[in-house]
Design a protein around this nucleic acid. Structure first.
Length: 206
DNA sequence: CCCTGATTCGC
DNA sequence: GCGAATCAGG
């Protein structure tokens, strides 16, 4: 693979968006994160500042080269607003057993998809959910989504949060990807809304 | 251990 | 110019 114009463009775009070198490498394909970092430096844009600097820059970095930033702060269209913050709460699986957890990501993702067939982008509140997740947990989730790695299904590993965000039927769909909590399939924030203690349903008339 | 970016240096 | 190896850090 070589650094074609298109690839460089994507690199620039992603880098200024705050994506990590490894994520960019995955997206580009055919290159390692080292290659990406190397290119970033050769392009002289190690200074990420194009609208927002959310990452965690290395404090000890005396970069002598700090050329002007030609990249204009292109408005990031990605939907920061996600109904998913409230969406998945409905299917929050109240699992009490810390054992076996099959295809965790598929479950919530799919169920969200089938219902999304109706309205896309509108809150889908029907469905009398019989559980209330602490507002704190939900707030935490919407916040965490800003820092999410936004991985694709293929990029998920055993230690990346598999919480789905967005509508699987659209481009705006990804998995959290943040570091999972010990043994769980989700990150801390998502574990909070995914695993509910058995409650609010003392009457399990069946 | 997982991850991050920074730098070096043979190619 | 490129990027693996390495370094330094969280």
């Amino acid at each position: 693979m070589s650094w074609t114009d298109e690839r460089v463009e994507l690199l620039k775009k992603m880098w200024s968006e705050g994506q990590s070198a490894s994520q960019i490498a995955k997206e580009l394909g055919g290159v390692t994160r080292n290659a990406v970092i190397g290119k970033v430096h050769r392009l002289g844009l190690s200074n990420r500042s194009g609208g927002g600097a959310p990452q965690q820059a290395t404090p000890a970095a005396a970069a002598p080269a700090a050329p002007p930033k030609p990249e204009a702060p292109k408005a990031k269209p990605s939907a920061p607003v996600t109904p998913a913050a409230a969406t998945p709460k409905r299917e929050a699986p109240a699992e009490a057993r810390p054992a076996a957890e099959p295809a965790a990501p598929a479950a919530p993702a799919m169920s969200a998809a089938r219902r999304a067939i109706i309205p896309a982008g509108q809150p889908l509140p029907p469905q009398p959910s019989a559980n209330e997740i602490s507002p704190e947990a939900l707030a935490k989730v919407s916040e965490i989504e800003k820092k999410a790695k936004r991985l694709t299904l293929m990029e998920l590993t055993e230690r990346t949060c598999k919480w789905p965000v967005g509508d699987p039927a659209t481009e705006d769909f990804w998995f959290c990807g943040l570091p999972v909590q010990q043994g769980k399939p989700y990150c801390e924030a998502h574990v909070g809304v995914a695993f509910q203690p058995m409650s609010s349903r003392r009457d399990r008339k069946r």
